[in-house]
Amino acid sequence: MMGVVIIVLVVIAALFVIVSGLWVARALIAAISTNGSLPEAQNNSDEQNNHQDT
């Protein structure tokens, strides 16, 4: 029983890691499809980009 619980937790952790990888891959594709200009950031107002002083 203990073994089954551990294996289930391990599988959930593995799936979480894989989903994280896919999420970041999606963001990467969005970033490089606009030649690295990080489009999500540029579509926001100054209020949202708080303290963007550089």
Partner: peptide, 12 residues
């Protein structure tokens, strides 16, 4: 990076 990184890229 001009302080423009979105959440997914900061986390990744």
């Amino acid at each position: 990076a001009r302080r423009a990184l979105p959440l997914a890229l900061v986390f990744g």
